[in-house]
């Protein structure tokens, strides 16, 4: 168990990290590398081991095997020096119901021995402000809605300037406006130089904010890298909207388009372009020349979901 020297420019680095709960192997041989300054999406279906990994990174549970480094230092051994620079939201917020939102933050701030009590009030105030809870600061936390609790949990991660933020499903329970605000907040933090590691099972969410991503399934890492590269692995699908699907399929097949699927509900025909794709303008002209009435024509960009399905060959379901 002697981990090698930390890789420069990497804030989270694990090698062979594994965790076995009684019976279940929740995380299995994880080699993760999170570059400094990235917004890193940690993807996976329910029960794939995301929270378990985060708990190990935060020193809450001991790995069964392997090692983890956070900010270049081994965890959980260096918790005391690493964690003050890390803000975390782990498996939802946890609050003292009988305390006000503000007093909850004061409580968590007081638990950090590196937090200056003289600036506590001001820092709590600005954290509340950042998540839009200033108006509800004096309300008892048990009277908070799910989304308000989630915001307060985020505020507790923002009590100090952080080098790394670890957010486990940060938009869980938020309304669409709240989700947008959190995404904006994440981008803003990333612009300030904070590395953000966020787990989610929402693929669009990751696509919208993340620069990098890793995909977990059944405790194993399937892939990791820049988001652009992950979805570049799969080519986009051609999409034609038309009331004449039969003729469309015939023409497209003649031009080498494969895996043609007709969806009668949306009146769309989709298909996989060949390795050396024909000029799309000519393809469109060929359809029109064959008498096909084309309402829509275009290439749908490959989504992470396509990448995910391509990688695993399976859907996004909970493993049994």
């Amino acid at each position: 168990m002697t981990p090698v020297a930390p890789t420069p420019g990497v804030v989270i680095e694990t090698s062979g990290l594994a965790k076995q709960y009684r019976g279940t192997l929740a995380v299995d041989g994880l080699d993760l590398q999170v570059p400094r300054g990235s917004v890193f999406g940690f993807l996976g279906p329910n029960g794939s081991g995301k929270t378990t990994t985060i708990r190990m990174l935060m020193g809450l549970i001991e790995p069964t095997a392997g090692s983890a480094r956070v900010l270049g230092r081994p965890m959980p051994r260096s918790s005391r020096s690493v964690l003050p620079k890390v803000g975390a939201l782990i498996e939802g917020p946890a609050l003292y119901g009988f305390l006000s939102g503000q007093d909850n933050l004061i409580r968590y701030d007081a638990a950090d021995p590196t937090a200056d009590p003289r600036t506590r009030k001001a820092r709590v105030g600005s954290a509340l402000d950042r998540v839009g809870l200033t108006a509800a600061a004096g309300k008892k936390a048990k009277a908070y809605s799910l989304g308000m609790k989630q915001r307060l949990g985020l505020a507790s991660a923002l009590l100090q300037p952080r080098e790394l933020l670890v957010l486990d499903e940060p938009t869980n329970g938020l309304d669409p406006q709240g989700m947008r605000e959190i995404r904006a907040l994440v981008r803003e933090l990333a612009d300030d130089g904070t590395t953000v590691f966020l787990s989610s099972h929402l693929l669009d969410e990751i696509e919208q904010v993340c620069t990098h991503a890793a995909v977990m399934a059944r405790g194993r890492l399937i892939t990791q890298g820049p988001v652009a590269e992950l979805s570049a692995g799969t080519r986009g699908r051609l999409e034609v909207t038309t009331p004449d699907p039969v003729e469309t399929v015939r023409v497209l097949a003649a031009h080498g388009v494969t895996d043609l699927v007709t969806d009668p509900h949306t009146a769309q025909v989709t298909g996989e372009l060949p390795a050396e794709p024909p000029d799309l303008a000519e393809l469109n002209a060929a359809l029109v020349a064959a008498g096909v009435r084309v309402r829509g024509f275009g290439l749908r960009r490959a989504s992470l979901e396509d990448a995910f399905v391509a990688l695993t060959g399976e859907g996004f379901d909970v493993a049994g």
Partner: peptide
């Protein structure tokens, strides 16, 4: 049981100190 323990520990309160 309320989960606040994990947030105290990542604050980090330190287990012995807590």
């Amino acid at each position: 049981s309320t989960g606040t323990l994990r947030y105290l520990l990542v604050a980090p309160a330190g287990r012995t100190r807590l």
